[in-house]
């Protein structure tokens, strides 16, 4: 219900911008990073989020969000066991690894593969929120839903909010 093909396409386009920027030079540094990223994953219920990527590169290391895919060494001990020599990859955008359909039967079937180590990789929405909200809680950033997401009319209907609030 939340994830439609149309919004999937919007998402792919949005992340294409990121990929183009990363393809320009293989060695990623701050100047390669996009200024901002439009995230429209929840655009049915919320207006797309304009993520101030440049602003966040001043507050966090690349690896804080991109793990081992942006050419920097991850600090997580568990990741370092395998990802010892991080190279900037083609998989820089969140959506390249984190599925927007984390709980679909096709995705769940892939978890049966006995060779798979990352059985617990969050879906795209979970990856965003766990990373963003987790850091915002620690660093005192905004944590309210509507601090980042402005509700659309469909969102107000879903939440019985705004114009669709119950009569007092």
């Amino acid at each position: 219900m939340l994830i439609t093909k149309k919004r999937g396409i919007v998402w792919v386009v949005a992340m294409g911008v990121v990929l183009l920027c990363s393809a320009a030079g293989r060695a990623l540094d701050q100047s390669d990073a996009p200024e901002s990223v439009t995230i429209g994953l929840l655009e049915e219920l919320y207006e797309p989020v304009e993520f101030d990527h440049a602003g966040h590169t001043e507050m966090a290391e690349c690896s804080d969000c991109h793990h081992h895919t942006a050419g920097t060494v991850t600090q997580r001990w568990n990741c370092k066991k395998c990802h010892t020599n991080p190279l900037e990859g083609d998989t820089v955008s969140c959506a390249d690894c984190h599925s927007p359909n984390r709980f679909d039967s096709q995705y769940l079937a892939t978890l049966d593969n006995p060779e798979l180590y990352h059985v617990e990789k969050p879906g795209l929405k979970g990856a965003y929120h766990l990373n963003c909200v987790g850091c915002h809680q620690e660093q005192g950033g905004p944590t309210g839903c509507e601090d980042c997401h402005a509700m659309t009319e469909a969102g107000e209907q879903r939440f019985n909010a705004g114009r669709y609030s119950p009569a007092p």
Partner: peptide
């Protein structure tokens, strides 16, 4: 149909 319940799909934090 093999789909997750609505609450699971809606949860932002997984």
């Amino acid at each position: 149909e093999g789909r997750p319940p609505a609450c699971v799909e809606a949860c932002p934090q997984e």
